[in-house]
């Protein structure tokens, strides 16, 4: 078993979006992330899957230091990333990089590719020959060196995303957070970007925290998968186990909602759990298990008590009353 490079423990992020009451003002909060724990191993791809509003991007932004957690810790090789040290904060940004979903808006349209790649180098690797380094970065992502004189608008969507990947590599990170890196791209381009990422991962022993809503893609790239729903993780397992034996009703619902191409894939879907209801507003999270309002198996206890994460098999944990200790055989 390889070491954990990143450990996230009971991470919470609550946003105050307004106040209630005139005199005794109570804040209205959105619990975007509400107690997420996970660990990332060296060289693995950890898939964090969820629908919009589940808080997966908020986890990503905290991991790279764009948000400060409300509570909980993120440790990189044992060091707390939010202990307030300025030097740690800079190292944090060097070691953990991010690639955003929409390369059209994450690259500055007024800067050439050279300037875009130069900035992280100037901050984190000032001692190096930066021009040489830019050429090396472009060759790493299989772009010709003359691309450095281009501007983002001259590139296609896929190329822009590849430049964003090169920028993430510029600081020589150990972890790259990929926030839906291919969902803005066409499927014929997606393959190229994903395979590039996989090659870079092997070459530099990178760890990926891969955030997506595409479970079919995760089947092919992730070593472990976690499902998020309304700020909480409801199931984590190794990819093979996860797809063969999905346990949480929400996971089953997600899997059976995927449009697939072949009969063989259809056969892999769990017994059809028809999707119903909508994801509740994160301001007004239902009491008990937050999924009970859409769950076909919901019972009285689900409406009152929030279930704990429980390990069913080694490495496979589920947050659901159906798998509470006394009934785990069912």
């Amino acid at each position: 078993m390889t070491e954990d490079i990143l450990t996230i423990t009971d991470l919470k992020k609550h946003f105050v979006i307004g106040h209630n009451g005139l005199i005794h003002r109570t804040p209205i909060t959105v619990k975007a992330v509400d107690g997420v724990s996970l660990s990332l191993r060296k060289g693995e791809t950890f898939g964090l899957v969820g629908e919009s509003g589940s808080g997966k991007s908020t986890v990503a932004y905290m991991t790279v230091g764009m948000y400060r957690p409300t509570s909980g810790t993120i440790r990189f090789r044992g060091e707390d990333l939010f202990d307030g040290s300025k030097e740690r904060s800079k190292r944090h940004k060097k070691e953990i990089q991010i690639v955003f979903q929409d390369p059209g808006s994450s690259l500055n349209p007024r800067r050439s590719i050279k300037d875009i790649l130069d900035l992280p180098l100037r901050i984190h690797q000032p001692q190096k020959n930066r021009l040489e380094e830019i050429v090396r970065l472009l060759s790493l992502v299989e772009l010709p060196p003359e691309y450095m004189y281009k501007y983002p608008r001259q590139l296609s969507g896929g190329e822009k995303q590849i430049v964003a990947i090169a920028r993430a590599l510029a600081t020589d990170p150990s972890i790259i957070v990929l926030d839906e890196p291919t969902s803005a791209l066409d499927v014929s381009i997606q393959g190229k970007v994903i395979n590039l990422l996989i090659r870079l991962q092997q070459e530099f022993e990178l760890s990926f925290l891969f955030i997506t809503h595409d479970l079919s893609l995760m089947r092919n790239v992730a070593s472990r998968v976690a499902i998020m729903y309304l700020g909480k993780i409801c199931e984590v397992a190794d990819a093979a186990e996860f797809f063969e034996n999905p346990l949480h009703p929400y996971t089953q619902m997600l899997l059976s909602s995927i449009p697939v191409l072949t009969e063989e894939e259809e056969a892999l879907k769990p017994v059809k759990v028809e999707s119903r209801g909508e994801i509740p507003s994160p301001v007004n999270v239902p009491p008990g298990c937050s999924f009970h309002s859409r769950c076909p198996y919901a019972e009285a206890i689900c409406k009152q008590v929030d279930p704990e994460m429980k390990e069913i098999r080694p490495g496979h944990t589920v947050r659901c009353h159906l798998f509470a200790s006394d009934r785990s055989q069912a």
């Binding site: 381009i189 393959g191 595409d214 079919s216 894939e265």
Partner: peptide, 14 residues
């Protein structure tokens, strides 16, 4: 190019 639930990696696309 479409990633499959059956696994087996992601094709390089077009």
């Amino acid at each position: 190019a479409v990633p499959k639930l059956t696994g087996g990696g992601v094709a390089h696309g077009i």
